[in-house]
Design a protein around this nucleic acid. Structure first.
Length: 826
RNA sequence: GCCCCCGUAUCCCAACCGGUCAGAGGAAGCCGCCUUAAAAGCGGCACAGUGUGGGUUCGAGUCCCACCGGGGGCACCA
């Protein structure tokens, strides 16, 4: 090998192949084939980026992983839809526009171009003819159209309610956008509450289905995401029980333990619920008022502490226990939440820790009705909630099974009309309006005479007015309100003076349906073509980050169900499989400016080239694991790529030579590798595919240097297989190899090699003979040896005979052709 | 507190339905060959008994239980 032959120039190779791929247009999805069903379709999707600056390591990882499968599917002859676009509405652009006295579009579209160039160079096999941006009027026209469709169905509505308010971003937030520690998902500021009239999507209408369908996704979605959604939806089974109240309408409570009804000794309503004010007696009104002042002073952070002492106030009113007619005092407390269940509970202190804490603080009675064998809660202060024998519980007495107890009580309550079995959800409706500029305007006109009037379809899109710089400054209400000539319109219904809704939609609305728009991104007549949705949907694999486990993924599932019920699609779930990619970290820590441990993608690409970076990211670990950049070796990846490339140069047989005449040992490695790679790819074990490709490179190198030699056609076969496998991860190197091997571009258009089953069969396998589980002998046997033959052979082996040493053979376990285990008597 | 996931060589990771006294691949390390030398390349060496303790089984990294450690979700949700 000559000196000049030892390396190739990665950047020159990148320059060389990009125009070739574009000319070949090899990654365009074929709608006609999908519609006719002549080829099996595959829809590959990766979460589209927000255009903030250039791409970073995280993008590089997810695109690399994603592209492996998209390319593999194409090799297998599938019709592959692999689109990309930008989630281009959102606050960073708006904030930048305020700082620089610009229009958000300037920043947004400049970044999109930067990211597009980077993606292009990164060599991902996207179908760029379907590129979209959610901030284009042609896109958000249909976001608005969908909003109106939802509203027609009663799934979008406005209500006044306490809402989450981000004081930094100066806008409301959905529950999903407030983190567990009470901070804003986007900016980290501490979220406060405000009472406002806002638009909502009725996600709760689909709570049951969103929950139930998770069972079907259990195996094909990564487990933690399913778990997170299940917890977020928070389904709990129980009963609504109605309690008569002296001098008032009855109140209904939700309980998961109706079987402990006989142990109820008081009632509690949420102090801040309207109900508390209605139930309080005039004598107690002042006490409640004082308590409410107290409660409102407590910050959200205080509320999050679960161990703070219970507080509350007696309302002076009594309810009646429907099962035994007992009088129960009604209290108000902040440990009961106004917006969960009915905002009121029956308190069973013996069997609920919170109720017990309250009872002890307020000196209320505790009555045990389930004897679990534990100490009496009244004395220990520890409530019991397990199975036990019911006592003092009328018809339940003597029963020992909780499920049965619950079931019986519900029957009883239903029989006399005081309660019903029911299911309650933690999930709330999705608050979708935002008081910021750079989003899709809500297409509603408010008219004094007609109320809320939808903007007529032929007037969509409602385009954003031209605002820039200081006009966009957040002031607690939408900046759109400042554009008076935009706001003031004639009512579409009566023609009188009216005003546009000035809020914009949460950008999660835009991203809840973008994968439908990819189907017909240029369709000016509809959001998407239902025929294409039927042909292409659902998405075969979706890849994205864990941070969207209950945000985007839940919203997209909700949208899908609504679109199905609108008759636009015929499938229930958008993402048949979901894989979350880990993060790229550095030195055990998240990359950040303050730590100074950031790794710049552009610099890595400059230094090692696209292929080496992609290979490093795919090879580092299973896709869902984090990658610590300090643990991986892009230079090692470069070396491997050069090694593989040299293989192609060393091949000395001619293209088209019959591999069947080649070295069988190497051919077996090649065919086994291809066979295994397919299985590994199907189960997303991409790092192992790379390892197996490395193995094949090693085997081929050995064959050239000290085996069958470079002229053996088996070497060509192996090198071609390497090129094809490598093209999944390192497309540039693979093209170079393919060309060196004397083929026309592009390797992306090559066929997946056909595996010869005969080459997968071993001539002989090693069978081990164990005595008491310890290996005592190895036998070379035919792979199709029968169990009886193998047993006979094993027992005849001199070593085995010696090891048995005349002891009783109690049992012989035979797993032909690999193993015999002899169990001998003591 | 409830729910989910994960603990394999110095490090990143393999190990199909439980089955060859755990090893495919890589990184770092050490030693050779090549070289005037270095890099690159080639070849080789070494390194754990699978977090801990029980159990099931002829046989456990793999299944079950408990505990420890790490990560994540939910959480005064009735």
């Amino acid at each position: 090998m000559s000196e000049t032959d030892a390396h190739y120039d990665v950047h020159a190779v990148e320059e060389k192949w990009l125009p070739v791929w574009e000319r070949l247009d090899a990654f365009r999805a074929d709608d006609a084939a999908a519609l006719s069903g002549e080829r099996e379709k595959r829809y590959a999707l990766t979460m589209f980026p927000y255009p903030s600056g250039d791409l970073h390591m995280g993008h590089a990882e997810v695109f690399a992983i994603h592209d492996v499968l998209a390319r593999y599917w194409r090799f297998r002859g599938h019709d592959v839809l692999n689109p990309m676009g930008w989630d281009s509405f959102g606050l960073p652009a708006e904030n930048a526009a305020i700082r620089n006295d610009e229009h958000p579009a300037t920043y947004t579209y400049a970044n999109i171009e930067t990211q597009f160039e980077s993606m292009r160079r990164y060599g991902v096999s996207f179908d760029w003819s379907r590129r979209l941006h959610t901030s284009d009027p042609e896109y958000y026209r249909w976001t608005q159209w969908l909003f109106l469709k939802f509203r027609e169905q009663g799934l979008a509505y406005r209500k006044n309610s306490p809402v989450n308010w981000c004081p930094n971003d100066q806008t409301v937030l959905a529950n999903e956008q407030v983190l567990a520690d009470g901070t804003c998902e986007r900016c980290g500021a501490e979220v406060t509450k405000r009472e406002l009239t806002q638009w909502y999507f009725r996600t709760t209408h689909y709570a049951q289905e969103l929950h139930d369908c998770l069972d079907d996704l259990q195996d094909s979605w990564i487990g933690k995401v399913v778990n997170a959604q299940r917890n977020w939806i928070g389904r709990s089974e129980g009963a609504h029980v109605s309690f008569a109240v002296e001098g008032h309408d009855p109140i209904t409570v939700f309980t998961t333990r109706p079987d402990t009804l006989w142990g109820a000794t008081f009632m509690v309503v949420a102090a801040d619920a309207k109900l508390a004010g209605e139930l309080v007696t005039t004598e107690q009104a002042q006490a409640l008022e004082d308590y409410l002042v107290e409660v409102r002073k407590a910050s959200d952070i205080d509320r999050l502490a679960t161990d703070r002492p219970k507080s509350g106030v007696f309302l002076g009113t009594y309810a009646v226990n429907p099962v035994n007619g007992e009088r129960l005092p009604i209290w108000a407390s902040d440990y009961v939440l106004a917006d969960y269940g009915t905002g009121a509970i029956m308190a069973v202190p013996a069997h609920d820790q919170r109720d017990l804490d309250f009872a002890r603080a307020m000196d209320l009675p505790v009555r045990r009705v389930v004897d679990t064998g534990d100490e009496n809660p009244e004395e220990t202060g520890v409530a019991t909630s397990g199975n036990g024998t019911y006592v003092s519980s009328g018809p339940l007495d003597g029963l020992t099974d909780k499920a049965e107890g619950i079931h019986r009580v519900i029957e009883l309550l239903e029989a006399d009309g005081t309660g019903t079995g029911t299911v309650n959800f933690r999930l709330r409706d999705w608050l979708l309006s935002r008081q910021r500029y750079w989003g899709a305007p809500i297409p509603i006109i408010h008219c004094a005479a007609c109320g809320e009037v939808p903007v007529p379809g032929d007037q969509l899109p409602v385009e954003l007015p031209e605002l820039r710089g200081a006009d966009l400054k957040p002031k607690g209400t939408s900046p759109l309100g400042g554009a008076r000539e935009w706001v003031e319109v004639a009512c579409p219904s009566c023609g009188g003076p009216a005003e546009r809704d000035t809020d914009t939609m949460d950008t999660f609305v835009d991203s809840s349906w973008y994968f439908f728009r990819y189907l017909s991104p240029n369709d000016a007549t509809q959001a998407f073509d239902p025929a294409l949705a039927k042909a292409w949907g659902p998405i075969d694999l979706y890849i994205g980050g864990d941070e969207h486990a209950v945000l985007h993924l839940l919203y997209a599932r909700f949208f899908t169900k609504v679109l199905r019920d609108l008759g636009l699609i015929d499938w229930d779930e958008p993402f048949s499989a979901y894989l979350s990619q880990g993060k790229v970290i550095n030195g055990g820590r998240k990359m950040s400016k303050s730590l100074g441990n950031g790794v710049n993608l552009g610099e890595q690409l400059e230094k090692f080239g696209v292929d080496a970076v992609r290979l490093t990211l795919v090879f580092a670990s299973p896709p869902e694991d984090n990658i610590d950049w300090a643990d991986v070796s892009p230079s090692g990846a470069s070396k491997f790529l050069q090694r593989a490339w040299r293989l192609a140069g060393d091949v000395a047989s001619a293209a088209g030579d019959d591999a069947a005449a080649g070295d069988t040992a190497l051919r077996k490695v090649t065919h086994k590798t291809i066979h295994d790679a397919a299985q590994l790819l199907e189960s997303y074990r991409f790092n192992v595919v790379v390892a197996r490709t490395m193995e094949l490179v090693n085997a081929t190198r050995k064959a050239i240097d000290s085996g069958c030699g470079a002229a053996d056609p088996a070497v060509r076969e192996a090198a071609e297989a390497v090129a094809i496998l490598l093209s999944l991860v390192a497309p540039y190197t693979a093209e170079e190899m393919w060309e060196r091997l004397g083929h026309q571009p592009s390797v992306a258009q090559a066929a997946w090699p056909t595996v010869d089953p005969a080459l997968l069969v071993e001539d002989s396998v090693t069978a081990v003979v164990q005595i008491q589980g310890k290996v005592r002998a190895r036998l070379e046997v035919a792979p199709d040896i029968s169990e009886a033959d193998l047993e006979a052979l094993a027992l005849a082996d001199p070593g085995v005979v010696k090891a048995i040493d005349g002891r009783d053979v109690r049992k012989v376990i035979v797993r032909a052709p690999k193993l015999v285990n002899v169990v001998i008597g003591g």
